[in-house]
Design a protein around this nucleic acid. Structure first.
Lengths: 277, 277
DNA sequence: AAGTGGTCTAGACCACTTT
DNA sequence: AAGTGGTCTAGACCACTTC
């Protein structure tokens, strides 16, 4: 019986896990044989370590968005743990929307090319009728040097290259969202207005497919502001019209910030919806 | 070996579960013996049925907010299922913030009288510094007949008695939030301005303790508006100042709406924070 | 029929809290 | 020492999908 409880300095230095696992089968019916290191202050449950290993494979691109990952039994065999432990790891990854389970088919890497996740990052809904996806119009795409504030939020150096995008989104012809985006130039090489205009569907789908960057979560700060002349012109409203100002930082695997977005939402016939639970 | 898989018309008609449970102990090591009804279109996993039973006990007040509920072993014994099945039911209740687990102590009914849940329903945070709780000033408390829109959202009849509350919340002396609340009169009998002013701490704590109504979730719709004269006067800002308009419907056990709230937030030095995940 | 995830049980041991 | 939730394993069967 081998020791299942591992002592780890951090979740990043987890790779040698295999060598700490039992190499011989556990006696049937036997429970967990604890090592004497179990009181370690850096103790981490086995399933958390497995979760970190799976996350690493997602991050490294071993399994790409939309693809099938190995079955629970295969992963259990690879990591030398029971299927139940792999299951608990995948349970959490599924709860965090990193993977999607489908009974009878398998577990798939989450992708933004799916109806079910279409409105996960678009919280503006019409006051009447079912949510639907807006039309995109790209106003401007340019390369520039990151201002200090942009660099800080993207965790890059001030003056580093960033891609700036301005677009307007309309619902049934009515301009409703003005977005300004800043993306790290090192990741989004070759992003042009043409490519953005050609692409139909959510921008995060394009980012994922064309630039290998999958967004896993975002953090938003919302304020109320008034439209200035430039904004009023772009959204076709009067100067002084109250608008939602939504500042978003989006993160990819490893909680790395890879998008800064400032959206101005016209909330006359739409609202930002939020569930508190 | 008894049949564990039950056929249910709905989650509400679950009470006879006990009579469908095995009364004699299951043969050790035996798996699940499925009944021939397993293909029923209304099939519900055992742990979901247990979850519903526990939720009923929460709703009925058998265990009150802050109290300890029976241990997993006790519940397993009561419901004649394994401890693992109870565990999975409680896992979900914990994820939904209905209960709180504490290793070594037990599982407690969630309460709003705790630091850990203090900011679950208060999303306005200062731009600089750590979140802190605002001071309350009750402006008005009165009884009135529910307007049609209020009645619709509270799922009561138009003209039914409601309690109306207006208050201003301030951060370090600066008026920042103007709230208007409508509460069903049938539940919040005897709510007075004095009682609200005496009470220090979150209003949901008072609702829970004084009126036996614990909020479990809320749904918000956010818009940008401009301050009119009355609002400007109450928040000590200029007319036309852009404000967040946050309309909230809060629900208690059984997803019953029991509060309608319209908040106006000054977002000059604060922002509404939201995590998209 | 075979393979996948989903449910359920049983038993062991660990970590934490209280007695 | 006893009790609680937390982790881990093992094995059975169910529901769903594909072959």
């Amino acid at each position: 019986m081998g020791g299942f409880v591992l002592k780890l300095q951090s979740m990043n230095s987890i790779i040698p896990i295999a060598s700490n696992q039992p190499v011989s089968p556990v006696t049937p019916g036997a429970g967990v044989a604890a090592s004497s290191l179990s009181a370690s202050p850096t103790f981490s449950p086995l399933y958390q370590q497995i979760k970190a290993l799976i996350t690493q494979s997602l991050q490294s691109g071993e399994w790409k968005p939309g693809e099938l990952i190995p079955s629970e039994m295969e992963l259990a065999s690879r990591f030398k743990v029971s299927q139940g432990t792999v299951r608990k790891a995948i349970d959490e990854l599924s709860a965090e929307n990193l993977v999607v389970r489908r009974q009878g088919k398998g577990t798939f890497v989450a992708t933004h090319h799916e109806a079910r996740s279409q409105f996960r990052f678009l919280r503006l809904a019409p006051d009447e009728g079912a949510p639907h996806y807006p039309e995109n119009k790209i106003i401007e795409v340019k390369r520039m040097r990151a201002p200090a504030e942009v660099a800080r939020l993207l965790d890059i150096k001030s003056g580093d290259s960033v891609v700036f995008i301005r677009r307007v989104q309309s619902f049934t012809g009515v301009p409703t969202i003005l977005d300004d985006l800043w993306l790290p130039g090192s990741i989004f090489k070759g992003l042009t207005a043409e490519r953005l205009n050609e692409y139909k569907g959510p921008m995060y789908g394009l980012f994922e497919t064309e630039f290998g960057t999958h967004m896993i979560r975002a953090s938003e700060q919302i304020r109320a502001v008034c439209a200035d002349e430039q904004v009023a012109s772009l959204l076709n409203v009067d100067v002084g019209m109250p608008l939602l100002n939504v500042e978003r930082v989006s993160f990819t695997y490893g909680d790395k910030p890879v998008e800064l977005r400032r959206g101005l939402y016209l909330t006359v016939n739409h609202h930002y919806r939020n569930e508190l639970s």
